[in-house]
């Protein structure tokens, strides 16, 4: 019994450390998920288009030409000079679409990041500390949920005036509720695990427990909510711009393009359909990615 060496040699069962690492398994699931791959590829293309807009756009998106107003796209009898035609001020539609990707992606990313930080901080604090903190956060979530986002955004933008910055900040300050709800419940699930108790027993400070034990185990849910809220913010920007209370002309925004095209909708429906379609494709790609990420990260969660 006191012969400690019996345990010093690895027993034969230990040879059976098998299977891929969690990272390898995750990669395998990611590449095996069709919806996720489609979403990632489409979104990737749109991101590249936004980044390299100056190289890709055939014309200056702001350059007006009264001689070339409302030229139709090539597939409706137009010329290759303006592959997707021109708008009512003679600006090249394709160039405006390409630059518009920047606006949509920027708003989606920054607004979702702002609300992600707010919502995650609130949700994790509520879930981890419970008690009074939780009561306060739950109250704030309920207050926020009682406010109709579009109306509040409209009111604020109407008072402060519309601009890219105002729209981003307003959406960022409004869209944190889902982050808070999801992060709170994920934290509640994780905080009772024994590895959290083990980290505390080792002497980890509370911030360290939160950052290195709790956060890595709820990050997958954060990413999923992040994609959903990005899509949400992009659609809200388009809606606000359509109503004239979002991004202001002459900024090339897809929502604004739909708005500007709506007067001509009966005669030139492509002016609405083209920006509407790219908006649809962007949001669909982001949602495919979000759903895929949830599918892909869920099995690990369960084990």
């Amino acid at each position: 019994m006191s012969d400690a060496t019996t345990n010093m040699t690895p027993d034969p069962m230990l040879e059976a450390i098998v299977g891929p690492t969690p990272g390898q398994m995750l990669r395998k699931r990611i590449f095996g998920h069709q919806g996720l791959m489609i979403g990632v590829v489409v979104l990737g293309i749109l991101v590249l288009v936004a980044i390299f807009a100056p190289l890709l756009a055939p014309h200056d998106p702001y350059a007006q030409s009264l001689m070339a107003r409302m030229k139709p796209p090539v597939f409706l009898g137009g010329t290759w000079e303006h592959p997707l035609g021109t708008d009512h001020l003679g600006r090249d539609y394709l160039s405006r679409l390409i630059y518009g990707a920047r606006v949509s992606l920027l708003i989606g990313l920054v607004a979702a990041t702002i609300s992600g930080v707010i919502g995650t901080a609130m949700g994790v604090a509520a879930g981890y500390f419970g008690g009074k903190v939780d009561a306060v956060v739950t109250y704030l979530i309920n207050v926020r949920l009682a406010m109709p986002v579009v109306l509040v955004a409209l009111a604020v933008v109407a008072i402060l005036g519309g601009s890219l910055q105002v729209v981003i900040v307003v959406l960022g300050l409004l869209l944190w509720d889902r982050f808070a709800v999801v992060m709170r419940s994920s934290t509640l699930q994780v905080r009772g695990r024994e590895y959290v108790a083990a980290a505390k027993a080792v002497g980890c400070s509370t911030p360290r427990v939160l950052m290195s034990e709790i956060m890595p185990n709820i990050a997958n849910n954060l990413i999923v909510v992040m994609t959903l809220e990005m899509a949400h913010a992009i659609l809200l920007e388009a809606a606000l711009s359509f109503l004239g209370l979002g991004v202001q002309p002459p900024t090339p925004s897809w929502g604004l393009m739909v708005s500007e095209g709506k007067n001509m909708m009966l005669f030139e429906p492509w002016m609405v359909l083209i920006p509407g379609a790219v908006l649809f494709v962007l949001v669909l790609a982001i949602n495919l990615m979000g759903d895929g990420l949830r599918d892909v990260t869920a099995p690990e969660n369960r084990s």
């Binding site: 969690p22 695990r193 590895y195 108790a197 080792v202 002497g203 890595p216 185990n217």
Partner: peptide
């Protein structure tokens, strides 16, 4: 005094499926 206590007293928990952080 948890930090000072930690150097002298350590736990081994019941469930090794829950006591190790799966992300590390």
């Amino acid at each position: 005094d948890r930090r000072t206590l930690a150097r002298r007293i350590q736990p081994i928990f019941q469930d090794p499926y829950s006591s190790l952080n799966p992300r590390k």
